[in-house]
Amino acid sequence: MRGWKPAPHILLLLPAFVVLAAVVVVPLLLSLYSSFTPFRLTRPDSIYTFIGFRNYLRLFADQEFWVAFGRTVLLLTIALNLEMVLGLFLALLVEKATRGQRLLRTIMMFPMMFSPILVGFQFKFMFNDNIGLVNNALQSLGLTDRAIPWLIDSQLAFTSILIAEIWSSTSVFAIFILAGLMAMPKEPLEAAKVDGCTPLQSFRYVTWPFIMPFAYIAMTIRSLDIARAYDIVKIMTDGGPAKRTEILWTLISRTAYSDARMGLANAMAYVAIFLSILFTILFFRQLAKARQQIGAEW
């Protein structure tokens, strides 16, 4: 090492590089590499067998994977849209409140304060077909005399998960849109009133374009959230029964840990990440467009 004199700025940056390499770059490269091997946790030496794209080829032909993939996209699409609409209504209502707005905002954020695992348990209990609150309520009200198999029927279980997901995260949209509403200058709205707009037209032509960027930010964040959804589903149905509610990450974790096929699971994970990147690019494009439209200076 004699004679090797790194410039001070490189020397000072080195610790950061080392830490980043250790916790991000090396695991990333290792997992990428392992997706090209038949690596099984039970057979550590299998990591040295290079099999090229065989894991990926297998995935593309794997119907189970594509069903989970499709289900994740479906969950993402429905949840995002419903959360968007509900969050918008919530934000508009809270913004109208003249008193206690702070309190309302805080209450609105309560669902975000709970761990998704706990939300999962709560909804698992509520939707339980024997002792759950939902069936209890429906039966007490005389709407049905059957025990509805909320978490067992494929479509009902999907709906139940959707409800839990929406309950816990609608406030993300509400908060962002509310921020947009509060940052919005009031004069253009007054100008719209004078220009002859009904309240609905004011919303359509003035308010909505202004809060769109805020909605897109919320969408980006939430699309990443849902694309990696795991905890609520794991607790409520664990992808079952019989894989009726399997989504990407429950499938990946099962493949990696229960089946111990780490190589294949890593290949799946990379495809899943690709999905996330795709959505992020999509929403950021929209965001840039919307921002430019309102002439935002941020």
Binding site: P185, E187, P188, E190, A191, A192, K193, V194, D195, G196, C197, T198, Y205, V206, P209, F210, Q293, I294, G295, A296
Partner: peptide
């Protein structure tokens, strides 16, 4: 306002930014 057939110029211009 929309039924009064008036128009108004605001101090902050109040143009529609988009």
């Amino acid at each position: 306002p929309r039924q009064r057939n008036i128009s108004m110029v605001f101090q902050s211009y109040a143009l529609y930014p988009h």
